[in-house]
Design a binder for these strands. Structure first.
Lengths: 341, 341
DNA sequence: TTGAAAGCGCTACCAG
DNA sequence: CTGGTAGCGCTTTCAA
């Protein structure tokens, strides 16, 4: 075979320049302090001068494992996912790990591709924070033996930890609260993710409304996730015959979008209509009026996930536990007494 | 050497199961259609049954290059960066490339680490969208021979494309506009990124104000990037003796944060004070009141970057061109006639 | 149309 | 403390 030419620096080049073996260069780069300091200095200098950067692929291959933490989320645009990503990234960095993220945009095809990528990268740990999921993929991940954490989906298994939020409880608290304010006609705005947690929120909504006040009416609207989607759903709601005094949104991001539409229609919040979100993203505090919502402790969740797949305490990995989080209602100014009709 | 044990599937396992050589398996997986279809089918089946996922590290190593597009941004939380990232990701995916992102949080140390990572990964192309940058790093990237694109920083070089926005013009348009509304006391809210584009906006601000109306007064406030930072800066501004009739913010994200503080202080926008942003993120349209801002065509920029580092037209790569973008003022409802004082 | 084998750049064992 | 060397899993000639 013709020897392929290499444009980039490699260990060998550094070794030659420093007049040592590749083993020694490797030792220096990996900070094994068995190397004589004079030698070390020589190697460092050579590497520096050659502008050498170790090939991480070769490293992972030789080590048989990578130091990559893989993260898969549904929609980076939604601050909810972003916050978890950020926490994980910070934790990973603090432990000397790289991070690779992938977005699915709620499309299962991209989910599949993302999982393929992560497995191909032989990630050290995998966090899957998505609202869509199919059983087959869970099995694929389970079979890979990679320590993984799923958020709101699947069941605990050998190498898989499960984090879930008790949405039912969160929605119930919200509906009770609105009910206590006199609201009887409530609408729910969701998005088109048919699987998992989203539909759980929707179902809980209908259930809770029914339970809280037998006389209450409920209706559901949906669009895509995001500001635009929230607005779109709000428009449909306004155009419909159903005139709710309160609107529950599947998440804060959509709620902010919905608020805009209401505002433009001349509806005052909460005087004319109350609105609530879910997640308690930063923006919920900054919009006008500040949004009543349900807090999901994203940082906390991020840390838990990290601990369970990469963290120091190796015993924690792959235990296959389930962690349930109990969300809290956060009352702000987007909700008030039901308008007299 | 003791043979290391391998828990994960490899080409060899698939080859054995399919009763062919590893070469053939490789061919099938790489979709070289020289393989007899019966053989192909056998291989596919074997791979499937073994739940096999090619080791991307080994692949990159053998190929001598990866199919990874590297992206480095300052602050994923800021929708501005996020939008560019999303565009790049979509383009990359459409071309069968993986994407690896890294955040720097405006810290040059993390920038260095991120660049190291990207070079170590031997990315096929690198996009650096940050507000901080040091010359040394630019040289490092230049020396790597990797097709790269820098946003708003550095100068064109062999393998490096440069995209820049004419901030001066954008700020000037904004100041002129405000000036025409009668504003004479203007404040600028920026963030603590001392280098590059941010300071360019700040400088342009002072310059433009001075030029537009000799009698005008200007003052600068700063905090960290983000909603919180914007709010913080607004608070300092309010507490200061300087009472501007208009506030220009370095970006929309901070403007939204600032608006909250103004609102809480009982100031009405734009009746009591006008406010503008920069970037024209989606949120600018959804906040209350909708924000007057300067549009930066992020999708367009994303596509340009992609074309220049990975795109189909190989001739486009590494030309070392400079692309300048002319931003447009977008007037919404957060600005109005200056209040009588 | 397929197989054999030489690397890709690095790590880690063993010997000295 | 340092060097030699056998892989890690894959691609890609070259031969058959």
């Amino acid at each position: 075979m013709r020897k392929r030419q290499t444009l980039v620096m490699n260990l060998d080049a550094v070794a030659q320049k420093a007049r040592v073996s590749t083993s020694t260069v490797s030792r220096v780069l990996n900070e094994l302090d068995v190397v004589k300091s004079s030698t070390r200095a020589r190697v460092m200098k050579a590497a520096e001068e050659l502008n050498y950067h170790p090939n991480l692929h070769a490293r992972s291959l030789a080590r048989g494992k990578s130091r990559i933490l893989g993260i898969i989320v549904s929609n980076m645009e939604n601050p909810f996912f972003l916050d978890i990503y950020r926490t994980l990234e910070a934790d990973a960095r603090a432990h000397g790990h790289e991070v690779v993220v992938a977005n699915t945009d709620y499309q299962s095809q991209q989910l599949v591709a993302s999982v393929q990528l992560m497995l191909g990268l032989r990630v050290a740990g995998l966090a899957v924070i998505v609202s869509e999921m199919d059983e087959h993929l869970i099995q694929t991940v389970a079979g890979s033996r990679i320590p993984a954490a799923f958020y709101d989906v699947g069941t605990p298994q050998k190498n898989i930890t499960n984090i879930r939020v008790d949405y039912r409880k969160g929605i119930k608290k919200t509906v009770s609260y609105l009910s206590s304010l006199g609201h009887r006609r409530m609408a729910f705005i969701g998005h088109h993710s048919t699987l998992g947690p989203i539909s759980e929120r929707r179902k809980s909504f209908l259930e809770s409304v029914g339970r809280c006040s037998p006389s209450a009416e409920a209706k559901i609207f949906a669009a895509t996730d995001g500001l635009e989607g929230g607005r779109q759903a709000a428009r449909e709601l306004i155009e419909s015959a159903f005139h709710p005094t309160a609107i529950l949104c599947v998440n804060d991001f959509m709620a902010v979008g919905a608020m805009r539409e209401l505002r433009e229609e001349g509806l005052q919040i909460p005087r004319d209509v109350s609105i609530t979100g879910f997640d308690n993203i930063k923006l919920a505090e900054y919009c006008s009026p500040p949004l009543t919502t349900v807090n999901i402790p994203r940082e906390h969740i991020g840390h838990i996930i990290f601990e369970n797949i990469i963290g120091d305490d190796k015993d924690q990995h792959g235990i296959g536990r389930e962690i349930v989080i109990d969300p809290e209602l956060v009352v702000r100014e987007s909700t008030g007494l039901a308008a007299k009709s």
